[in-house]
Structure formats: structure tokens, C-alpha cells
Design a protein around this nucleic acid. Structure first.
Lengths: 266, 266
DNA sequence: TCCAGCCACCGGTCTGACCAGTGGACTTTT
DNA sequence: AAAAGTCCACTGGTCAGACCGGTGGCTGGA
């Protein structure tokens, strides 16, 4: 069984009485620096746009060597908290929060775990359905116009080839995700979509009947858009789920297809 | 509008013809090392449990100084990909995937209001609904028994206090997530659940009517289990969504509550 | 065969150095 | 006085070499 992320803490054998000791990990110096800076940022003591002292100044403040300070900065940088630029006399910059880190980790999850295409499709259907459901209720007029524009581009792209069509398709789904107002859904959906596309890359483009596929997909998307325009969340969700199923179901086994079908009905 | 993670690539002003230049960021040496190792891990060339050469050996292979190699290792380490232990003659170890990084990023976003409780609840309702829907169809008898055991523990815990109840509650949801057969949903759900709990920590436990809450939650969970046992996915999804709504809706604003309600109907 | 001790090697940290680039201060020009 | 150009202190990126405490495979003795 592979259940990552499900760490069990208590050992279930005989624990006498008092102990409950925790394993102690050696704490490296650079980790303490990272902790201090992270805490300062989390508490608002350091605010995006603000600058950290220069590395050499930090060396003095933390009382370590520059190598140690730099290791800490590299970690903070890779976590998207700060950015260093060579030559900048103002020192490293505190960055505003972005979902970039989330995206990176999700991407790793999607790549590292043995995620089958079917599993990814389930995720995609789930995310898209929810995004549509929310977008139908929450979308602004501007966002609706953006979706309409994307669909227009899809319509124009049917004769331009799969590449352009797919791009407009992605733009539509992205617009819906944004309109859902949910960062988690938006980021997850983007990651999963990317991964799915990379898995079926080529297959769709070289399908014999690709123009037919595109036309049918376009119809489905128009249904979705209509439902969103009408504010009918459940209908939008239903249509989008059906659309994804029709588009991709051919690429999974019969058994997996049955799993996908479980998500279809209302 | 705050939609981080939605980077626009094309500038929409007059681009003459050919260019389409991309901004070039200076690539530090340590980043290239990180890339190489990440790629090797992603491609399966490096497998969890396997060891990296020692730092001094990497210095030779990459043709850089030890400081540079170490910065790369610190980044990889902070991303949960490898672990170095001083004195270990086998070198840094390639780690199996964990959800720790995901959890960290989610917590960070939640702390900075980039991800509100309402948004997390939407995600949770979505994930749980889908997990239940799938579990109703895919669950094995053993998995069903596990769910029943968890519910029994919940029932026994009503009088034992919130802590124990919550633990059994988590166990039930985890069992459902496992039964869904979808790693993505399982991990995401665990992480989101964890974050939600940390946000409402204490509030639930100290609620005046906590025993009433627990009893109602128990009823909801029994409904969910019944639906799963009956193989009725949609009903299980509906019941679980309603359960989460009832449990948490009191902690979000009226406007946000309306968003959550959009997920309730069939 | 098994155990204790050794020692080569590991990672963590430090010191000190060099380089190309940045951007504010300063000077010159308009 | 404002704008343009120049300069240079200081920055981050990288390197070389060193020391330390600790680890674990190897080896020799019981």
C-alpha cells in the first residue's frame, strides 16, 4: 500500500507510562535562520517589497559564516519567499505570496505518484465541475465576456488545427477557474490539466477524426457557457463533466471508464 | 484582483513580427544542479532509497565548488527530495514522496489570507464528495469494514471528548479517500483537511454545544456510510457535502456561506 | 563466529578571496 | 536648475582550502 502523507505518529506497541519522547533531529544553523525569517514574514514583521540586509550584514547579525547565510537564503528563495539579485545594494527582496510553491508541489505529486491517466481525469472532472458550479453563481460580467471570447477563439480554431484549438480550450477552462474565485481549484486544475495534456500529447492531435472531435467539444463548451450565463451551476457542472468524459474516455481501459462514469450522473 | 499563479505570458501591445522573446533570468549554477537531480528523480533514474554521491564526489561530477553543490542540496532537501546526514558514508538519500511540502505551502497560503477558510471548505467539500462517490462504487468489503469501525469509534467518542471524536472522524474520511482509489484526491484531501482543522482549532472544541455537534455529525456520517454500503454514490456525496456544510458553515461570512450552498443541491 | 575498536570518509561550518554587475552619489553638460 | 553621463562602493555568485565531530564498514582479536 502506498499512502504517502499518512504518517503515523504513535507506535502502537507497549509504551510504558510517561515517555512520549519525540525523535530529535539535528537542527542545522541555516535552518534556524530560515525559521527566523519565515516567522518574521508570517508575523508581518517583514512585508513584501521590503528588503533583507545584505548577506554580509546578515553574517554579522546571525553570527555565522556567509556560506551558512547563503544556504538559508537559497532555501527561502526556492520557497518563493525572497529573491536575491546580484549587485543590488538594497539586499534580497521579500516577495509577495504566490501560489507558485503550491503549483510546484502539486506538480510533483502528479508526476511522482503513480497517477494513471484515469486518476488524473477523475481529478480533472471533479475540479472542472466544481469550478463551473461556482462560476455560474459568482462570475462577473467581465469574466463571462472572457469565456465568450475564448469560445469564439475555439470556434475560429476548428479549421486552424488542433494546436490553436487546444490553446483556446485551455483559456476557457482557465477563465472558468478564475471566475470560481478559488485559488486552490484554479491552481490544481491548471496542474492536472497540464499533466493530462502531456500524457495524451499527440494522440489527440493525430486522431483521424480530430475535426469532428473539436466540433463536438465546441458544442459541449457552448452548453457549459450557456449554463453559466443562465446561472445554472448544476447544469454547467453536468455539461463540463460530460464533455471531459467524451473527450478522453477513449484513452482509458473499460474498467477505468466505469469509474469515470460514476461521476457523470447528476 | 488577486489571482496569483496566473502569469500572463504574452504582452498585449504592439509586437511587430518575429520576436516573441522571453525574459531571461540569470541561471545560477546551483539551480542547474537542482534541475539535473530533479529531472533524474522525476524520470525514475533516481529512485527513493538510492543514494547520491558524496558532496565531494558531486563537486567533481558537476565541476563546481562544494559551496555550490551544498546550496543545491539544501534546496533539494527543503523540497523533501533528499536528505543528508552527517557522517553517512553512503551519501545523501533520495526520499520517497511525502505530502509535507504540499502541506507547508497550503498552510502558508492559508496564513496569508490568500486562501480563506471558505475556499478551503469548498475544496474539502469537493474532494470529499468525489471520494464518497467513488468509494460507493469501488470500495472493497475490507474497506467498508474499516469505515464501519471508524464510525463505531466516533460513536464511542462522543462522551470521551472532542479530541478523540475528531481523530475517529479523520480516520473515517481517510478510509473513504483510500477506498476512492485516487491518490491525488487522497493526498489533497488529507492536506486540506489538516489545514482546515488548524484554522478552526479550538473553536470547535470549545463550542458550548460541542456534544450536540458531535452527535449531529455522527448522524451525518452514518447516512454517508449507509449510502456507500448501498453503492449509492450520489447519495453519499450529497450527505457528505451536507455534513461538512453543517459542521463548518458557522465559521464563515454570510456571503461565503452562499458560495458553499452552491455546492449543496444534487 | 562474533564482537570491539579503529579510521577513512562524510556532512556542517568557517575563513578569506575574486569577479562581474548594480545603482546611488557625484560630476559634467545642457 | 535640470538632465545626462561617470564612477565606485558594495552586492551576490563562486571558488579554494581548512577544521571538526560523527558514522559505519573493516579488521583484528576473543
Amino acid at each position: 500500500m502506498a499512502h504517502p502523507g499518512a504518517e503515523s505518529i504513535r507506535s502502537d506497541d507497549a509504551m510504558k507510562q510517561q515517555p512520549a519522547f519525540e525523535p530529535v533531529r539535528p537542527v542545522r544553523l541555516y535552518e534556524r535562520i530560515v525559521d527566523q525569517v519565515e516567522t518574521a514574514i508570517a508575523s508581518g514583521e517583514l512585508v513584501p517589497g521590503q528588503r533583507l540586509p545584505s548577506e554580509r550584514e546578515l553574517v554579522v547579525q546571525f553570527g555565522t559564516s556567509r556560506a551558512t547565510v547563503r544556504e538559508a537564503l537559497r532555501v527561502l528563495e526556492s520557497n518563493g519567499l525572497v529573491r536575491s539579485r546580484p549587485g543590488d545594494p538594497n539586499g534580497p527582496e521579500i516577495l509577495p505570496f504566490t501560489s507558485g510553491g503550491l503549483r510546484k508541489q502539486l506538480h510533483r505529486l502528479a508526476r511522482t505518484e503513480e497517477l494513471t491517466l484515469a486518476q488524473l481525469l477523475v481529478s480533472r472532472m471533479m475540479l472542472d465541475a466544481t469550478a463551473n458550479r461556482l462560476a455560474a453563481v459568482l462570475r462577473t460580467d467581465a469574466e463571462l465576456a472572457g469565456m465568450e471570447a475564448a469560445i469564439d477563439r475555439m470556434r475560429d480554431s476548428v479549421d486552424l488545427g488542433f494546436e490553436a484549438f487546444s490553446e483556446a480550450d485551455v483559456a476557457f477552462h482557465e477563465a472558468v477557474a478564475v471566475a470560481s474565485g478559488n485559488t486552490m481549484i484554479q491552481v490544481s486544475n491548471a496542474v492536472v490539466r497540464d499533466t493530462v495534456l502531456s500524457l495524451v500529447a499527440g494522440k489527440l492531435a493525430h486522431a483521424r477524426n480530430s475535426k469532428t472531435l473539436m466540433r463536438r467539444s465546441l458544442e459541449h463548451h457552448e452548453q457549459v457557457l450557456d449554463a453559466i450565463r443562465a446561472g445554472d451551476g448544476p447544469a454547467a457542472a453536468r455539461a463540463s463533466t460530460q464533455s471531459l468524459y467524451d473527450y478522453y474516455a477513449g484513452y482509458v481501459s473499460a474498467a477505468e471508464r466505469r469509474t469515470l462514469q460514476a461521476l457523470l450522473d447528476g
